[in-house]
């Protein structure tokens, strides 16, 4: 679920990426979002130092999905002591690629007039799910057959108090599309597809036992 977000894709609440004590008084917190097909890095800068901060810039290290700022970091005014400013930085996925561990790790450098600071953050994979990730049913069936068993992983999702239609709607607003739903011996089996920004498809099966809050995703 997402606070205050009955529709639209899920946005994780902002967390502190760089505490002020590690960055000469600059505190950076943020989150990632996908809005209308655009990936955005929502960042809050707070000046906890005694001096004014100016000349901000941001740079990403190469990363698994080529995330890169699509525009320079623009802070409208210098940041006075105790001032906070919020910025939404649009991101592209055409930057340099290097496989990271974990896959969704992003290393960031931020500079201001005082120094250069570095931090890492983990972005949620749903920001990479594109709007045209609904696979044709025939293609889905053929592709599913071709997936080697080594490429299948299974996870338990605990404590989810939603029925399969609610789950399906919530996932669809995150570009995870339900291709088919079948009821076998009382349990709902949902077949779903999604496509990453780099063109890689993911196929999923979600098993929901009515009355049980524990799901199995393969």
């Amino acid at each position: 679920s997402g606070v205050g977000m009955p529709t639209g894709s899920y946005v994780v609440p902002k967390t502190v990426w760089l505490p002020a004590m590690k960055a000469k008084g600059l505190e950076i917190s943020g989150t990632f979002a996908r809005r209308m097909g655009t990936i955005q890095m929502d960042v809050t800068f707070t000046n906890k130092a005694m001096q004014i901060m100016t000349d901000f810039a941001i740079q990403f290290n190469r990363n698994s999905f080529g995330l890169s700022p699509a525009a320079p970091l623009q802070l409208a005014t210098p940041l006075s002591p105790n001032q906070t400013i919020e910025v939404s930085l649009p991101l592209s996925t055409v930057g340099p690629v290097m496989k990271m561990d974990p896959l969704n790790n992003l290393q960031v450098a931020v500079k201001n007039n005082i120094d250069v600071f570095y931090f890492s953050s983990l972005y949620p994979i749903n920001i990479l799910f594109v709007e045209d990730g609904k696979m044709e049913r025939q293609v889905f069936l053929a592709t599913w057959k071709d997936i080697p068993s080594d490429n299948e992983a299974q996870f338990q999702i605990k404590d989810c108090h939603l029925n399969s239609d609610a789950v399906s709607n919530k996932l669809q607003s995150n570009n995870i599309f339900t291709i088919a739903k079948r009821n076998v011996e009382g349990q709902d089996m949902l077949y779903q597809s999604m496509k990453l920004t780099n063109g890689i498809w993911i196929l999923a099966e979600l098993r929901i036992q009515p009355g049980s809050p524990n799901f199995t995703v393969s």
């Binding site: 025939q138 069936l141 291709i179 088919a180 079948r182 076998v184 011996e185 349990q187 089996m189 077949y191």
Partner: peptide
């Protein structure tokens, strides 16, 4: 909806996954 045989194919898939 046109019966393209895919409905049946998904039913078979779900059943085979349930009883491998």
């Amino acid at each position: 909806e046109i019966d393209d045989g895919l409905d049946e194919a998904f039913s078979r898939l779900a059943e085979s996954r349930n009883n491998p």
